[in-house]
Amino acid sequence: MSQIFPSAPVDHWSNLLWAVGSPGITGSLESSFLPTTLPWLPEKRRKRLLEYFAQSQVNKKLSPQLEAFLQHYSERKPTSRLGVYFERLWAFVFEHHPDYQLLHHNLPLRIAGKTLGELDFVVRHLPSDTCEHWEVAVKFYLQLPGHFWIGPGLRDRLDIKLRRMAEHQLPLIRRPEVVHLLQDLNLKIEQQWTLIPGRLFYALEGPAKARGKLSKRQMQFWWADPDSFNLYLSTFPQYQSLRWFYLPKPTWLAPLQPDLASESHSDELPKALDKAPVDRPLCIAAKDKSGEVCRGFIVPKHWYPEALASLPGH
């Protein structure tokens, strides 16, 4: 697909700003649909992080350092996993924001040779002089019936992720053997935070249904099989003049920049899909002169039946 249709370039600094400034993925969902509650990072803390890194002088000073930091990590431990890239952005954030001291990143909890788990980050919040444990993740889920949300690769589900974080990852530090281990490391964790930004993509059910069922936000983030997407694209006049991009995983975070150039028109996307039949979920986005308009996943025709079969009761 990337050889047929233009790929969006990776902008690490924009991704960093998106990582620190984005609200949790569950913010747009009704609480009754969520399996548990978690200690979400307060908005005030997110705002302070974003305000610092959004300063032009900070960008000028640290942007080259971020490039070198990520390059160093990539050479030492190459990976294509988006979650690892996201954690590396946060490691840089904790090392450079004046409010934080990074104590541990991916701290393994091993007892008698057995690994019980690991802590994503242990940091000291300097303004409050508090030792904090942070669990961070970035997630992208597609809508299914029954208020279920599943990852494009069908290996991850929102309710399972939240429940595991609440019932396993966070309580780890309260297990007696882990308490002793942390004491040996001279760590007394006083606060825990969770942070899971990402996007929820709503099903396109065809143009007629979409008009009646999907809100403006739902039209902005969608998923569809190739036939449904082509029908949708040809039905809505406002999408005829957009420029479309294929999004490799590192570009799933920040929105497309307004100055991003492309000669691709909307009528070229169906042709590109015909030349490269969709055999796995593809993330694409469209922009106009002001910036990104929408993005979504085009999935193979067999994706939806397989997604349904993975749900409880199927």
Rank of each mutant, 00 (worst) to 15 (best):
Y100R: 00
P98T: 06
L103S: 05
E95W: 03
E95H: 08
G83N: 12
D99Y: 08
G83L: 11
E75W: 02
P78H: 07
S74Y: 07
H97N: 08
P78C: 10
G83I: 11
K77S: 14
F94T: 00
W90Y: 13
E75I: 04
P98H: 09
G83R: 12
Y100A: 01
L102E: 08
V84N: 11
W90F: 13
K77V: 14
Y73Q: 14
P78W: 08
R81K: 14
S80P: 03
Y100T: 00
E95L: 15
V93Q: 04
S74V: 00
S80H: 14
V93N: 04
R76A: 15
L102Q: 07
Y73V: 04
P78Y: 08
W90V: 06
G83S: 13
P98F: 05
R76D: 12
F92H: 02
H104E: 11
D99R: 06
L82R: 11
H104M: 00
R81G: 09
S74H: 12
T79P: 02
E87V: 04
P98Y: 03
E87G: 06
P78F: 07
Q101E: 15
H104V: 00
Q101M: 05
S80D: 14
L89K: 06
S74R: 14
P78S: 11
F86V: 10
Y85N: 11
H97Y: 05
F94D: 00
W90M: 13
E75L: 09
H97S: 06
Q101N: 07
V84F: 13
R76K: 14
Y85W: 08
E87C: 04
S74I: 01
S80N: 14
Q101S: 12
F94G: 00
F92A: 05
Q101P: 00
H97M: 06
V93G: 03
E75M: 07
G83M: 14
Y73K: 15
A91Q: 15
E87M: 04
F86W: 09
G83H: 11
K77H: 14
R76G: 07
V93T: 15
K77E: 14
G83D: 13
P98Q: 08
H104W: 02
Y100C: 00
A91L: 13
H96K: 07
P78D: 08
R88C: 01
L82Q: 12
D99P: 07
Y100H: 03
H104T: 00
Q101K: 10
Y85S: 13
K77W: 09
H96S: 11
Y73C: 10
L82D: 10
L89N: 08
H104N: 02
W90D: 05
T79R: 04
E87F: 03
K77C: 03
V93W: 03
P98G: 08
V84G: 05
L102M: 06
L103V: 09
F94M: 00
R76Q: 15
E95F: 03
V84Y: 13
R88D: 01
D99C: 09
P98D: 06
F94H: 00
S80W: 05
L89G: 09
P98I: 03
S80E: 12
F92L: 02
